[in-house]
């Protein structure tokens, strides 16, 4: 449950809040724990808050990883359900 996911800041809002795009979905995220976040920058999001800024390259690498994990999960589910194996 310590997993943080990378997201891109798409909109800055009142009282230190921002809309952050995570895996294609926009979520409201608190920016109170990070400084000077700008639109277009990437943050690591955990339990509704940005816990750090992260560079674009790192963010993209991590996003790929999460997509991959999801894909692997799908494969795992398929093979689990497959009685032949």
């Amino acid at each position: 449950m310590c997993l943080a996911v990378p997201g891109k800041v798409v909109r800055l809002k009142d009282s230190d809040m921002a809309d952050v795009e995570i895996g294609g979905i926009e979520t409201e995220v608190g920016l109170q724990l990070v400084s000077d976040v700008k639109i277009g920058e990437y943050v690591l999001v955990h339990a509704g808050y940005a816990i750090n800024k992260i560079d674009e390259e790192g963010a993209k690498e991590m996003m790929k990883l999460f997509e991959e994990i999801q894909e692997l999960d799908e494969i795992a589910k398929l093979s689990e359900n497959d009685e032949i194996y």
Binding site: M1, C2, G30, L33, H46, A47, Y49
Partner: peptide, 13 residues
């Protein structure tokens, strides 16, 4: 309030 150091700051907030 369950969590390690990753989560504690969000709960403190």
């Amino acid at each position: 309030a369950v969590g390690f150091e990753t989560t504690a700051p969000t709960i403190a907030l």
